[in-house]
């Protein structure tokens, strides 16, 4: 059992969860993830690590409510216990002085790029951060990311904000304006990562994506998370989650992500009928 220290709604459909997990906090590195279960009947779901505090013994993630298990999680509060919290899983991201690194985050990925920004900055990089939000009211952690980055750009379709583009167009604009970018790292929904990889491909800038396929055990045992990178089958949980975005078979990944689309809806409807009679 692991105790929840904080569970807060950041913006609509996106929540923060901080869990007491001293051993995980002691070990985790940017780019890793945890697997948790909201209750005994829940699914094992992977969440990117967005922050941790080794002294406090806690690990923080930001998650989007999608299916039943994430909705259950969003209804828990500080002091509640969850039966499964395991990690840190996956290989840590490569952190070194690359020169200039452009980070792109959307949705839960805004949280997930934060530890990368912090570590890359510390390693001596110039860190440019692009936050993708559909509208102003979905923006969170802007202050944290500004503190950890050299420059922050907002890509949005909200006319109230100064920018009116989706993230790949913003990346095009930044790259077109001149700064030499040595590496791009994109985290968020599959479409965001795909479109970022497509935007940088013509320029040949190495683009790392943090894949989020369906997982069960997260230790390489089941192979649910298999994806194709450079023509070879890889297990995202142990070979990743970071991969070169220019080498991924995106079509396959999109399809595998949607494997249980109908079941997710059925499960959610079933749960909601019980929860909100």
């Amino acid at each position: 059992m692991a105790r929840i220290l904080d569970r807060r709604r950041l913006v609509p459909n996106l929540h923060l969860i901080e869990v007491e997990a001293p051993e995980v906090a002691r070990k985790c590195r940017p780019g890793q993830f945890v697997i948790l279960m909201p209750d005994e009947r829940g699914e094992r779901i992977p969440l990117s690590i967005s922050d941790w505090d080794a002294a406090r013994g806690s690990v923080t993630s930001v998650f989007l409510t999608v299916g039943t298990s994430s909705h259950k999680l969003s209804r828990l509060a500080a002091g509640d216990e969850i039966p499964v919290y395991v990690g840190p899983l996956g290989r840590p991201s490569e952190i070194e002085n690359f020169g200039t690194v452009l980070l792109a985050g959307g949705c839960f990925g805004i949280g997930a790029i934060y530890p990368l920004a912090r570590a890359l900055k510390k390693a001596g990089n110039r860190v440019l951060t692009v936050i993708d939000v559909k509208a102003r009211y979905l923006l969170y952690w802007e202050d944290k990311l500004r503190a950890a980055s050299d420059r922050v750009f907002i890509a949005s379709r909200d006319f109230a904000l100064d920018s009116k583009q989706y993230v790949p167009a913003k990346i095009e604009e930044i790259l077109g304006a001149g700064p030499k970018v040595d590496r791009v790292i994109a985290i968020g929904c599959t479409y965001l990562m795909y479109s970022c990889a497509m935007a940088t491909k013509p320029r040949g800038i190495k683009t790392i994506v943090s894949l989020n396929p369906i997982m069960v055990d997260g230790t390489g045992m089941c192979g649910a998370c298999r994806c194709t990178a450079a023509g070879r089958t890889k297990f995202a949980c142990v070979d990743g989650p970071d991969f070169d975005g220019h080498e991924i078979d995106w079509d396959e990944l999109f399809k595998r992500r949607k494997s249980y689309f109908d079941d997710e809806i059925r499960s959610l409807c079933y749960w909601e009928r019980k929860e909100f009679p």
Binding site: R41, G67, M221, C222, A224, D263, E264, S267, Y270, W271
Partner: peptide, 21 residues
């Protein structure tokens, strides 16, 4: 491994009482 884990460990045979399909 995945098929049996879903059914045995995660109890997918009792979906949607259990969340794993």
């Amino acid at each position: 491994n995945e098929y049996l884990t879903r059914v045995n460990l995660m109890k997918a045979y009792d979906f949607p009482n259990y969340d794993t399909p």
